[in-house]
Nucleic acid binder design. Structure first.
Lengths: 214, 214
DNA sequence: TGTAAAATCACGCATTTGCGTGATTGAATA
DNA sequence: TATTCAATCACGCAAATGCGTGATTTTACA
C-alpha cells in the first residue's frame, strides 16, 4: 500500500524548521513540502492555495499571532487537518488552551526526529501523542476538575433538596415534589445554607455546581 | 548511582502476571518481589507487611473488587505509591474513573515489556505515560468539559450582570456595584432570562455555570 | 440617514425568600 | 440510658424577586 501523509511546519526558528522538514522528508510515507515562519504567512498560503495538509506541526512562540491563537484559524480553513504542537512551553495555561482549541498532540522540542515521525503516524491513526510530563499535567488538570467535594457533610435529604434547588424549583415546588410541607423545605434550606456558609439561594447553587457537591 | 524501584503487580491472569514479573526483574534497577491475583489479597498483604511499593501495576478486570475501586484503597494504605493501569479496558468510563481516582499512567496490555519498563521510569520521573489512543480520549473529554457555549448571544453588559448573579449578589447589590438603577438591573435580568429561556434566577445561574456561558 | 438593538430608567403587585424563633419525633451513638 | 442529630412542621415579617407595561437615550450598521 501507498500511504502518503502531507505535513506542513509553522515554526519561526529557521534551523529547527529546516531540520524538521528534512527529517520528515527522509521518510517515504510522510512528506513536507511547505514550511512557514509565521502564522499569518501560513494562513495566507493555505487560504490562497486551498491547501489541506494532513498534519500541521505548530510552534507556540511565534512572531505576531501565537500558535494557540492560530489553532482556531487553521481549523476554520482546514478542519480535517490534525494539529500537533511542538514547543518549549509546557506551562498549564498553554497546554490547557492548546487542548481546548483542539490540538491532537503536544510534544516538546527535545524530541528526536524518529519520535516526531512516530507521533505523526500515531495522530494519523487516531491517537494523541503527548510528552509524558504534559500528559501528567493534563491528568492533574482533568482530575482537579472532577473531584467531588464532600467536606460539607450534607445529609442525603439535604443533597436531594439542593439538587432540586439547582434544577430551579421554588420552595413550594420542591415541597410538592417530595411531599413535604414548605416549612420543612425552608428548614432544610437554612441548614444547607449554614453548612455551605452562604446566605442566598444563588450562592448555594453556585457553590453546589462549582464544587460538585451532588 | 544505585536506583532501586520496587514494583508490585495486581493481575488475575497468571500468565500475564508472571510474564510482567519476569520482565521487570530482568532490569537491574527495577524489582518486583510481590504479585497478587486479587485486590483483596494485595490490600491484606500491604496492610499487614506495611509494604510501600514505588509503583503498582494494576489491572482493571479483577475478580471481586475491580481495579478502579481498588485505587482509593491502595492510596489510603500507601499514598506515595504511583499506580499504573495496565488493562484491555479502554472505554471512556474506565479511563475517566481511573484518572479521577488518581492513576499516574494508563497502558494497554498489548505493550512490549521494554515499553512497560520505560513507562515505569517515566512515572518515577514525574511523567504520566499513556497509550496514545487513551490520551486522545482524555484530550477529548477534557476539551468537551471546557467548551464555552456562546449560543445565547448575550451582550457584554448581560454577561457582566450574569456573572454577578453567579457570585450571589442581589439586584440592589449589582446596581450599586456597577452604578446603575436597580430598575435597569431588573431590566437586564429579564432580557437574560428570556435569552436563556428560564424563568428564575436559580435556573439562570445553573445554566450559566453548567454551560460555561461566562 | 434611518432603523434596530442595546442600555438605561420607572411603577405596581403578587409571590418568593431569608431569617428569627420556636416544637416534635425517631434513629443513631456513646 | 442519655444525648445528639436529622427530619419534620409552624408563624410572621422585611426584603427580594418576577413580571406586566411602559419610556428615553446611545450605539451600531445597512
Amino acid at each position: 500500500m501507498n500511504i502518503h501523509i502531507d505535513v506542513i511546519v509553522i515554526e519561526d526558528n529557521e534551523l529547527f524548521r529546516d531540520s524538521l522538514k528534512e527529517a520528515i522528508n527522509k521518510s517515504s510515507d510522510i512528506n513536507c513540502k511547505y514550511t512557514f515562519s509565521s502564522g499569518e504567512a501560513a494562513l495566507d498560503f493555505i487560504a490562497k492555495e486551498e491547501l489541506v495538509p494532513d498534519i500541521i506541526l505548530l510552534d507556540i512562540g511565534l512572531p505576531g499571532m501565537n500558535g494557540i491563537e492560530l489553532i482556531p484559524e487553521l481549523r476554520k480553513l482546514s478542519p480535517t487537518s490534525k494539529i500537533i504542537i511542538i514547543t518549549v512551553h509546557d506551562d498549564d495555561e498553554n497546554v490547557f488552551n492548546a487542548i481546548c482549541a483542539g490540538a491532537s498532540g503536544y510534544l516538546l522540542k527535545d524530541l528526536s526526529s524518529e519520535k516526531i515521525l512516530a507521533s505523526i503516524i500515531e495522530v494519523m491513526n487516531g491517537g494523541a501523542p503527548m510528552n509524558s510530563h504534559i500528559a501528567k499535567k493534563v491528568l492533574n488538570m482533568f482530575r482537579d476538575q472532577n473531584v467531588k467535594s464532600n467536606g460539607y457533610s450534607l445529609s442525603e435529604r439535604e443533597k436531594e433538596i439542593l439538587s432540586l434547588l439547582v434544577e430551579g424549583l421554588s420552595k413550594k415546588q420542591i415541597a410538592e415534589k417530595i411531599f413535604l410541607s414548605h416549612h420543612t423545605v425552608d428548614s432544610h434550606l437554612r441548614n444547607i445554607y449554614a453548612k455551605l456558609e452562604v446566605h442566598s439561594r444563588s450562592s448555594a447553587i453556585s457553590k453546589a455546581i462549582k464544587e460538585k457537591l451532588l
